[in-house]
């Protein structure tokens, strides 16, 4: 993962990629992301909440089985423009993940392959800032997939609602003190985080429901912790 120790700058990175990338789809995408670097405030930004359902946690070995997204602004989450894809995996689907996601083998056998889905997915993210809960999954699986299918890793800044929760609940001396005394850490899982903001519990879990849930959580975080005038570049990862 990219860290500050490398004096990393998203600006430099995106500029570099928009020049060097050989894949038109990716090139175009990097270019659209560059707009956000300078002066986009949260209020003036279009976001898109993204969620993947995968067969496991290992990007090298596990596969994406469904993708959900919903575009939104600080004012409104646009459910009418939400998208959802099932993805046909290359390998065998374990019975375990079927139980978790409620997606059946036959659903998936009819679904398009990942490279088809990526062709549709990327234009949806263009010109928007991607918001996820726990960036590891979406970022790593996407990088892995693009490397495999297009020969280049796709990496770009994302806002992570879990990281925002962690910043509030897992850092600072209070949290440190709690850890010392063995007090249980505040949960920063999606469902538990939502409860802290008075958001409802959702019964069902799918990539789309979780994307909507993430968008709602981010709206709530901004209302409680940030201002619409804050810069996007201050809170992305």
């Amino acid at each position: 993962m990219l860290t500050h120790q490398r004096r990393f700058s998203w600006l430099d990175y995106l500029q570099e990629q928009s020049i060097n990338s050989q894949e038109p789809l990716l090139k175009c995408f990097y270019q659209s992301q560059l707009d956000f670097i300078q002066d986009k405030t949260l209020r003036s930004t279009e976001f898109v909440a993204l969620d993947f359902e995968t067969t496991g946690l290992c990007p090298e070995k596990d596969e994406i089985v469904s993708i959900g997204l919903v575009p939104f602004t600080l004012q409104r989450i646009k459910v009418a423009q939400a998208k959802h894809w099932l993805v046909r995996p290359q390998g065998q689907l374990s019975d375990e993940s079927v139980v978790i996601h409620g997606i059946t083998h036959s659903d998936l056998s009819q679904a398009p392959s990942l490279d088809k889905v990526l062709q549709s997915l990327l234009p949806e993210l263009q010109g928007k800032i991607v918001v996820v809960h726990y960036q590891f999954i979406e970022r790593e699986f996407l990088a892995q997939a693009s490397a495999r299918l297009m020969g280049e890793e796709l990496i770009f800044p994302m806002i992570d609602t879990m990281a925002i929760e962690a910043r509030w609940h897992r850092m600072g001396w209070r949290s440190e003190l709690k850890r010392w005394f063995g007090v249980k850490q505040v949960s920063i899982r999606l469902a538990d985080s939502r409860v802290r903001y008075g958001l409802p519990r959702y019964q069902m879990h799918s990539a789309l429901t979780d994307a909507i849930a993430t968008a709602e959580l981010f709206q709530a975080q901004v209302r409680h912790r940030f201002s619409g005038e804050d810069y996007v570049s201050d809170i992305w990862q």
Partner: peptide, 14 residues
């Protein structure tokens, strides 16, 4: 209806 709605979060007092 469910696929046409928009959603927004309002903080207490907003």
């Amino acid at each position: 209806v469910a696929s046409a709605i928009e959603i927004s979060y309002y903080r207490q007092g907003a």
